[in-house]
Amino acid sequence: MNKMLPTVGIIANPVSARDIRRIVAHAGNLQVTDRANIVLRLLAGLGAVGIRQVLMMPENAGIRHHVTRDLKRSVNMGERRFPDVDYLDMAVTASTDDSVRAARMMREARVSAIIVLGGDGTHRAVVSACGDVPIAGVSSGTNNAFPKFKEPTIVGLAVGLTAMGAVPPEVAFQSNKMLEVDISGRKEIALVDVAIVAERFVGARALWHTENFKELYVSFAETEVIGMSVVAGILDPVDRKTPEGRRVVFDNSNPPRHLLQAPIAPGVIADIGIDYWEVLLPDVAFPIAEKEGSIALDGERELSFSKNDQPTVTLRTNAFRTIDVAACMKSGAKTRLLRIN
């Protein structure tokens, strides 16, 4: 690919924020039209700093329809604000697999960065396949600890500056931890948390039956996030850089050893019993104590396991790169990149 023409990838998940948390919690649903508007704001930011090529994941849930219509209108009006948007040539399955395949294809197409619009689940899918391509996230999902909501226009500008080579890599990129789950040889990842719950079926995926919580592994633990990782954040926070994680063992007896209130889902502040917690060191495979149950990755039940599986959890450092939007903007301002004269 021509060095002079960097391409940025956008993976906008149309199906996140549709699950049972709209019933068991008060989770929102970012509407398809809003998602399309977020993409347009990203494109405006990218276009303003010189990005002319954007590669998007195709989907059939409406984002593409809205974006295409608006881009056409913009062209009709003689504007050249937006980059050209191409879509990956891939079949749409309307599942998380689309995000995984799109990330792989974008990596192969050597995009400079991938902007992800979605929740923890979408980010996990992208990270599982993007390799060393840096990502920048815009939160749209329900249970988001990993991506933060940032104004997409700013994200577009920051990613654009980075992709154009205008921000030094040591400023632009951050490295991140993640958790690796090994279940009888099958490897899965989680960006924030791995929860072990008693339910042994995947079902509606979300976690809300607190009486079934068994163990929790987190790569970082903040106190101001929603989701399972906040439990560790309340007990013993650890930031995104420090090379350690946390392991928490729940206690469902009455009364439990420790009792805390944690905002585990939007609008749901649950009483949670804790037995103990400890530091999780990197690169050590930690065998899951429970003999059977299911494993929730970043808040969604993904796998069930039984006695024969002996799953382990390992904390990995320097696992993938993200773009530090604030640092890019600061750098851009300092080097007068955002000034026209």
């Binding site: 509407q31 398809v32 039209t33 059939n60 849930a61 509606a204």
Partner: peptide, 19 residues
């Protein structure tokens, strides 16, 4: 035209779930 039924339900003030 509204590509998500959860969005459509939300338009009427109802929670919606896709499975």
């Amino acid at each position: 035209a509204v590509d998500s039924y959860v969005d459509r339900a939300a338009g009427f003030g109802l929670p919606g779930v896709t499975v």
